[in-house]
Amino acid sequence: MKASPRAEAARLERLADEELMAHVDRKDPHAFEVLYDRHGGAAYSLAYRIVGDRNAAEDVAQEAFLSIWRSNARFDRARGSVRSWVLSVVRNRAIDALRRGGGGAPKLDHDDDAVLEARPGEELTEEEALRRETSRELRGALDSLPEDQSQVIQLAYFGGFSHSEIAEMLSMPLGTVKGRMRLGLEKIRAQIAESITPDGVLETI
């Protein structure tokens, strides 16, 4: 007997991301909708952080998810979690959009974002509230890095700049830029050690 649509939706929602991807690969739109529901918010947030504009961020998120749907981007279990993979696709699209638009260096502070996040009266699901709280904690970890290390990491990841572009921008030797990247990543890695599975994958945050 075939399950009712509601039961089928409930079943898909209970699947782990990796199991869900098998259904997405088979072009199941319901599975894809669950994938979007889980990661669409994080994807849009990342795109917005990079391109800095609501409409452009929506375009990026749409391009990225349709690329995933059409299997132009393939999930590689060896690379990490589904969420990390989805967000890496979004990041690549957003950086492309930034370069097409001739965008300059991204903003490096979050004051306006902090105000936006604190906006009262907005209804949040428990999961969204948790995601925002986690984001605040992790942002604190990033902000706790020495400014010079945080700066080069953010310019590379959110700005899409190469280490040589960053060296030129900040008027410092190439080796110094790469050294600061390493030190910064090592410190972040130490702070999130408890969220990393034994096989080295970041648990979904």
Binding site: P29, F32, E33, Y36, D37, G40, G41, A42, Y44, S45, L46, Y48, R49, A57, E58, A61, Q62, F65, L66, W69, R79, G80, S81, S84, L87, V90, R91, H110, D113, A114, L116, E117, E128, R131, R132, T134, S135, L138, R139, A141, L142, I153, Y157, F158, L185, E186, I188, R189, I192, S195, I196, G200, V201, L202, I205
Partner: peptide
């Protein structure tokens, strides 16, 4: 060993809710 430190960077971004119309557009195509 180092990659999780990169993978966590998107989670440091302030979290926003996309407009429902974005999902509608994507699902229409899908």
């Amino acid at each position: 060993w180092m990659l999780p430190a990169v993978d966590v960077l998107p989670a440091t971004v302030p979290q926003r809710q996309p407009a429902p119309a974005l999902k509608a557009r994507i699902m229409d195509v899908v």
